[in-house]
Design a protein around this nucleic acid. Structure first.
Length: 331
DNA sequence: AAGCTGGACAACCGCTTTCTA
DNA sequence: GTAGAAAGCGGTTGTCCAGCT
């Protein structure tokens, strides 16, 4: 048994508001205010509308000093910065932009700003929801390709934008300062080199820094065109070894990485990783790395320690993003 | 010219949070 | 302290329209 509806759904008008309705609502609120009770308001005004609908119409359209469209460069920057730091808390973002509503900003972000910042390269519908192993024919077999639908991209978008901003706005940031990059152990270097062998597309990092394994590994996050080892679900270790020499021998990869704090602190610089961690209820920060490593291995090893049964895989989210977007450039 | 597609935006839905009796 | 009501919020859907085939 659900909660009682806020109004009689059968007796309320839905759909677009007419100018007459707008006028009624606006003139009433201008004269009497909302009275602190939106549910009762439509009856007082004489509208066959749900109170929530009236509230939304007032807040998003009728109240004074509302601006529509024509977002400025400065507003774009504010929205982007706040999105990176706090995510899709549209009401909080809207509070920083006088005259803008959360709905307006949300729509603007989803339809324009995101594309402007990240670029857009949606693949054809026939292949949009599947990732296949390079060198293999597309297959319906869910072991060699997998469904990407229903996955959130927010966190990875934020990571991507964060890195974008870092490299553009802060010349002393981690990504632009090799001196700050953490040292990698042998295993991590090997892993990253393998990723690099599949990844030649570099957009965000200054050319001077491309050789560093960290940079190249991070480029893996920003390279939709290059298939990554964890973009597969193959159980065929032979195939995977062709793609990724060395991976088949790293059964204990995750455990070894678990023993290395560098990798974890590095990943946890990003809010989105922390967020994922919170969302997944991880008891400690190492779990994400363990999981990441498991995903990295794909299903090569059957002796995985993956704990991902209960939680949406992080990498899956990135795959969705890669399907949808190319990294674009600001300006 | 008709049909299709995708972008933009308004509005709705349902869950969560806050308030109040 | 608690339960119910109202408000707030973010994700999703529906509709309109312009551009393309």
């Amino acid at each position: 048994m659900g909660r009682a509806p806020c109004c009689d759904k059968t007796n309320v008008k839905k759909g677009p508001w007419s100018p007459e309705e707008d006028l009624k609502l606006k003139s009433y609120i201008d004269t009497y205010g909302t009275g602190g009770n939106w549910i009762a308001l439509p009856h007082k005004v004489g509208l066959k509308r749900c109170g929530k609908s009236c509230r939304l119409r007032w807040l998003n359209y009728l109240r004074p000093n509302i601006k529509h469209g024509g977002f400025t460069e400065e507003e774009d920057n504010i929205i982007c910065s706040l999105y990176i730091s706090i995510g899709s808390r549209w009401s909080i973002i809207a509070a920083q932009l006088p005259g803008r509503t959360d709905n307006d900003i949300k729509n603007y972000w989803n339809t324009r700003l995101k594309k402007k910042l990240l670029g857009r390269n949606r693949k054809s519908s026939s292949s949009s929801s599947r990732v296949s192993i390079p060198g293999q024919e597309p297959s319906d077999d869910h072991h060699s390709s997998f469904d990407l639908q229903n996955l959130s991209t927010t966190a990875l978008e934020r990571l991507q934008l964060h890195m974008h901003f870092q490299s553009l706005q802060n010349p002393f940031s981690l990504y632009n300062n090799p001196a700050l990059w953490p040292k990698l152990n042998q295993l991590q270097q090997k892993m990253i080199q393998t990723l690099n062998s599949l990844n030649q597309n570099q957009l965000m990092i200054p050319q001077d820094h491309h050789d560093h394994p960290i940079v190249n590994s991070m480029n893996c996050f920003s390279s939709p065109q290059i298939p990554l080892p964890f973009n597969t679900r193959s159980t065929d270790s032979e195939t995977m070894d062709q793609i990724n020499p060395g991976f088949a021998q790293t059964d204990n990869l995750d455990q070894e990485l678990l023993d290395n704090k560098n990798s974890c602190s590095f990943l946890n610089q990003f809010d989105c990783f922390k967020e994922m961690e919170e969302e997944e209820g991880a008891s400690n920060e190492m779990n994400n790395v363990a999981w990441w490593c498991n995903e990295l291995e794909g299903n090569i090893s059957t002796s995985t320690t993956s704990n991902s049964w209960d939680s949406p895989p992080m990498i899956h989210q990135s795959e969705q993003m890669y399907q949808d977007y190319d990294i674009g450039q600001f300006n």
